[in-house]
Design a protein around this nucleic acid. Sequence first.
DNA 1: TCCTAATTTCGCGTAATTACGAAATATGAA
DNA 2: TTCATATTTCGTAATTACGCGAAATTAGGA
Lengths: 108, 108
Amino acid sequence: MKQTLAIDAFSALAHDTRLDIFRLLVKRGPMGTPAMEIGRLLDIKPSTLSGHLATLKRAGLVSSERQHRKIQYAPRLEAVNGLVRFLLEDCCGGDESACAGIDLPAQT
Amino acid sequence: MKQTLAIDAFSALAHDTRLDIFRLLVKRGPMGTPAMEIGRLLDIKPSTLSGHLATLKRAGLVSSERQHRKIQYAPRLEAVNGLVRFLLEDCCGGDESACAGIDLPAQT
DNA sequence: TCCTAATTTCGCGTAATTACGAAATATGAA
DNA sequence: TTCATATTTCGTAATTACGCGAAATTAGGA
């Protein structure tokens, strides 16, 4: 994980509506949710929604795939693991015992 | 974890210098690092550093404690766990099997 | 092909964030 | 108390993010 990508991801999540969108997608699961339905559930105007989804996708937090007429968005949960690993990299200078109690996600 | 606090935390991390500071503190470990030393290591001006540390602290990402003349800053690793739990709350609608492969941090 | 639902792009005004010098403040040591 | 180190506050100017209406675009279905 590169620092600039991590910043893009944190920036994307640092916004009320985008955080709502991402958490909704997490709840909805890996099958994905159509863009319009996200907008309907969270009451977001199409142009605003489009921008937010693009931001989330650019940050690697969601994936999209067209299914017939609609574009399904799904959360990329590996991205969350990647962020945590980036944040906790070389934790406590590598001294595991000093890091006791912290859950480091497994390598993906 | 409340949404506004999560946004404060993500905003705090969504900045080059602050991300550098937090990751440095993670590497340095729980004993803490004096503010001035952070500034020296990362080449940050005092007034700029002060603002960034205040932002990180407001977001709950670091703690501070005065030791003699200096203020020691340490990372609050529980905050990272808290953010991950918040992001993945009710993952896949609670269907564990659909969430396979995701590391949910233990409750703190 | 033509139509239509689904999504994106553009442009605007508004609001928030940034770095940092200078000055103020706090605190421990002598 | 007096001094020096450590840190914060304040003001300013430049930059960037924001929502959303209107118009453009895309792609599936008939």
